[in-house]
Each structure stands twice: as structure tokens, then as C-alpha cells.
């Protein structure tokens, strides 16, 4: 799938600051609000935290995929952020997470929502590719790396 349709240069960040799971989620949502992608901050946060309650989206090898479904968005909103220091995200392997992929999708509308998560996950499935992503210094570099393939 074409990630350019979903990602834009102002929804990829190399410099997430928060040092907790809740902090990272709030920071990403706040940045999406300032990027003009989301207007209802609280509804979105509620959806993401509701999903985290069922099962943490901290996967393995530093990757987390916080996501949620809410009608506060009309179409898929997505973001990719890095926190190179690593954050405890209740991950499956207990390792701190450094790569965060977030999607907010509408409740009822059809669309390739999970497919976006899966596509990004596939792109960074191998250690070498994750290292390349973590080596990015600017927002643009991440954008180029993810959408250039």
C-alpha cells in the first residue's frame, strides 16, 4: 500500500520527549492536534487507552503500535514517532520501546486501517531496517525512509 497517502512530513517525528507509556500516547495525540489532523483530543485519547487496557500494544524489539477506533476522526489518521532513549510500554518482551506507530481510525467506515499498521510493521520487521529508522536525524528522513520504498 502507498504510505504517502496516509503519512505526511508533519506526522513523523524523531524527537518524542515523554518518558512513560501514557506520556508518549498523549504527546503523539497532542502533536496530531497541532498538525491539524485531530480536533477532539479527549475522545481520541479515550479510544487509544481503551485498546491499551485490553492488551498492551508494546510488541517486541522496541516497537509499539498504539491505536484506537473512534468516530472523532473521519478517515484514518496515522503517525510514526521515535524516542531513541526508549520508554517502558509494557511490551511483550519487557524491552523498552523506541519506535511508535499510531493509528486512529473511524469506527464504522471501511478502509485499510489495520493494513497500514501491518505495512509499517512489515517495513521494520528486520533489525537492520529498525536500525536505519532509528538512525534518522530529521522528520524528513523518516518520511523519506518509510514512503520511499
Amino acid at each position: 500500500m502507498n504510505l504517502k497517502k496516509v503519512l505526511s512530513p508533519n506526522t513523523v517525528w524523531v524527537d518524542l520527549k515523554a518518558d512513560s507509556k501514557q506520556g508518549i500516547i498523549e504527546e503523539m495525540v497532542d502533536r496530531l492536534v497541532s498538525a491539524g489532523k485531530i480536533s477532539e483530543r479527549e475522545a481520541v485519547l479515550e479510544a487509544v487507552f481503551e485498546r491499551e487496557e485490553k492488551m498492551s500494544t508494546g510488541m517486541q524489539n522496541g516497537v509499539a503500535i498504539p491505536h484506537g477506533k473512534t468516530d472523532a476522526v473521519k478517515s484514518l489518521v496515522a503517525a510514526v514517532g521515535l524516542n531513541k532513549a526508549g520508554v517502558d510500554f509494557d511490551s511483550m518482551d519487557g524491552l523498552p520501546c523506541t519506535i511508535f506507530i499510531m493509528t486512529i481510525s473511524p469506527l464504522k467506515r471501511r478502509g485499510p486501517h489495520m493494513q497500514f499498521l501491518a505495512e509499517v510493521s512489515r517495513l521494520i520487521g528486520q533489525p537492520a531496517e529498525r536500525e536505519k529508522l532509528l538512525a534518522c536525524q530529521t522528520h524528513n528522513e523518516i518520511y523519506e525512509l518509510l514512503t520511499g520504498k
Binding site: 492488551m55 489495520m114 501491518a118 510493521s121
Partner: peptide, 13 residues
């Protein structure tokens, strides 16, 4: 497999 596994997981949840 990513997409299949992720959609399966969401449905289980």
C-alpha cells in the same frame, strides 16, 4: 502475515 495476525488479534480482543 503481519496484516493477518493483526486483524486476528483485534477480533480476539
Amino acid at each position: 502475515q503481519h496484516v493477518a495476525r493483526m486483524i486476528l488479534l483485534e477480533e480476539l480482543l
